[in-house]
Computed example of a mutant assay.
Amino acid sequence: MTFNEGSDISKGRISRRAKGGIAVGGGVGVVGIIALVVALLGGPDLTGLVDGMGGGSTGGDDSALEQCQTGSDANDDLDCRMKGAAAFLDDYWAGSFESGYRSTQIQLFTGQTSTGCGGATSAVGPFYCPPDETIYIDTAFFDELRDRFGSSGGPAAQLYVVAHEWGHHIQNITGQMNGIDNSQTGPDSDGVRLELQADCYAGAALGAAEQTTDENGVSYLEPLSDAEWADALSAASAVGDDHIQEQTQGQVTPETWTHGASEQRQKWFNAGRQGTFTACDTFSVPGSQL
Rank of each mutant, 00 (worst) to 15 (best):
G25E: 07
A18L: 09
F142E: 05
A202Q: 07
F269V: 05
T256A: 13
G250D: 07
V30F: 09
T256H: 12
D79N: 11
S189T: 10
E165F: 04
F97C: 00
V50G: 11
S57R: 04
P155A: 13
F283T: 09
A156L: 03
D79E: 13
G154T: 01
E195S: 14
G191M: 11
D90S: 12
P286D: 11
A85R: 02
A271F: 03
G56I: 12
G119T: 15
S151C: 01
A238E: 00
T134D: 07
V192E: 08
A120S: 13
I9T: 06
Q69W: 00
L206D: 11
D138S: 07
D242T: 10
F269M: 11
G21A: 13
T134M: 13
A23M: 05
W257M: 14
I106V: 14
F283L: 07
R102F: 07
I14Q: 09
F141R: 10
D231P: 12
T139P: 15
G26C: 06
V218A: 01
E263W: 02
Y136G: 11
T276F: 00
G111V: 10
V162F: 12
R102G: 03
L89Y: 02
D73G: 06
N182Q: 13
F109D: 06
M1L: 10
R273V: 08
A157H: 02
T174N: 10
A86I: 00
E255G: 04
L206K: 14
T139Q: 13
T256C: 06
Q107D: 06
G54N: 05
L108T: 07
P286S: 10
T248K: 08
G60A: 10
G20V: 05
Y92E: 03
G25H: 03
C68E: 06
H169M: 07
A202L: 05
C200D: 05
N75E: 05
L224P: 05
K19S: 13
E215Q: 14
T256S: 15
S15V: 06
E263A: 15
Q274T: 09
I180E: 07
S151H: 03
G27L: 04
V31F: 06
L233H: 01
G27E: 03
G21L: 10
L46D: 10
A235F: 11
R13G: 00
K267E: 07
D8T: 04
V161N: 08
L49C: 09
T253M: 04
L40E: 13
G153M: 02
N172A: 13
A163H: 06
E195A: 14
W229P: 08
C200K: 08
